[in-house]
Design a protein around this nucleic acid. Structure first.
Length: 344
DNA sequence: TCTGGGGTCCTAGGACCC
DNA sequence: TCTGGGGTCCTAGGACCC
């Protein structure tokens, strides 16, 4: 009697990816706390992109201001981010993953999903790890699940350099007692809102009433949160090539901008850079959105639709200026951004 | 502590139309 | 003169993720 081979989802996640790439070309830094971010100067505005495991021991975390990282770890080595090097390393890793017989979905620079059919997922996961390490000298962790949600959470639990399986078999046991923000899709804000409803664990969220959640989070999101707590997710692993919906450029200034003319000049020049970047893609822009962050940390966005989809620099710049006109530029500005939305 | 830069998706409210 | 109910589109903002 033939039995069909079971399907699993793997989430492959590189360990301290960016720091690891830097360590490959600066082996003398191995074992030292390394922090990558900004222009590599921790006295300037900027945040941590990735911290090596040694730096994490001092409490340095990604997303943290570089100045804070410096206070926590004076002896850390600070390096500027080098996106081109990370992209190149990422391409190598993805090529290895693509060579496995699986549905492959690239989910960012340092992570991917594989949908595989196997009787022995654990063994296959170790083979994936070994293949990546052998070809690129980069370590990764592999989460095994029956869907992307389970696999994604499992890879975190596998870190660093391990394999972990999280399926309906052990979901309740592993996840039930954890706070809801252990789930992919629930962050600090939603966790706080859930706590206001008296929901403090994944198990409690799984047992909550959909109507109550819908009232608080909206008709789609509310019930979706509960399904996450049950370990359910129906987003398929998709090998469809990635098609960007939009492209943006933004910049935080070391010194705040104080006049509307300065802001206008920066928006204009960002729009020009953006058009330069997307010119080769052949995607037409339908709308331009401008983002302004005022002092102290107030972010506002306004957009302007374009009459016809276009790639014309002048029209896109003009759209950005029209969007900018909707702002009240009365406070100092610390960031401006321009986003181009593509025709769909 | 003082908060980057790049994205995606969802929601709610207003405009508009029938 | 005052006026319902529903659908769709647009926009801004919230939340999340890497």
């Amino acid at each position: 009697m033939l039995r069909s081979v079971p399907t699993f989802v793997f989430h492959v996640d590189l360990d301290q990816f960016i720091a690891a790439v830097e360590l490959l070309r600066r082996p003398e830094l191995r074992g030292r706390p390394v922090v990558v971010g900004g222009v590599g100067d921790p006295t300037l505005r900027g945040v941590v992109m990735t911290a090596s495991y040694e730096a994490r021991r001092f409490g340095v975390r990604s997303g943290m201001p570089l100045r804070t990282a410096l206070k926590r770890c004076r002896q850390a080595v600070f390096l500027p981010s080098d996106p081109e090097a990370y992209r190149a390393a990422s391409r190598q890793v993805m090529a290895v993953l693509r060579s496995f017989p699986a549905v492959f979905e690239n989910a960012g620079w340092d992570e991917a999903f594989l949908e595989v059919r196997t009787e022995d997922p654990e063994r296959l996961a170790h083979e994936v790890r070994a293949a990546v390490l052998g070809a690129t000298r980069l370590s990764c962790s592999v989460g095994i699940g029956r869907n992307k949600l389970q696999a994604k959470i499992a890879s975190d639990m596998a870190k660093p350099g391990g394999v972990f399986e999280l399926t309906e078999r052990n979901w309740d046991e592993v996840m039930g007692g954890l706070p809801p923000d252990a789930l992919w899709g629930i962050g600090a804000k939603r966790a706080a809102q859930l706590a206001e409803l008296g929901i403090r664990t994944v198990a409690q969220l799984a047992g909550a009433a959909d109507e109550r959640l819908a009232e608080r989070f909206g008709p789609g999101t509310g019930p979706w949160l509960r399904r996450l707590a049950l370990g359910e997710m129906d987003w398929p692993v998709s090998s469809e090539p990635y098609v960007a919906r939009s492209r943006s450029r933004e910049v935080t200034f070391q010194q705040d901008l104080r006049t509307p003319q300065d802001v206008r000049r920066q928006v204009s020049s960002l729009a020009r850079e953006l058009v330069g970047e997307i010119a080769g893609d052949g995607r037409l822009v339908t709308r331009v959105v401008v983002k302004v962050r005022f002092v102290p940390f107030i972010t506002v966005t306004h957009g302007a639709g374009l009459d016809d989809p276009t790639l014309d620099e002048g029209e896109i710049q003009e759209g950005a200026i029209r969007a900018l006109a909707k702002f009240e530029l009365t406070r100092p500005v610390r960031l401006v951004g321009v986003r181009a939305e593509f025709e769909r």
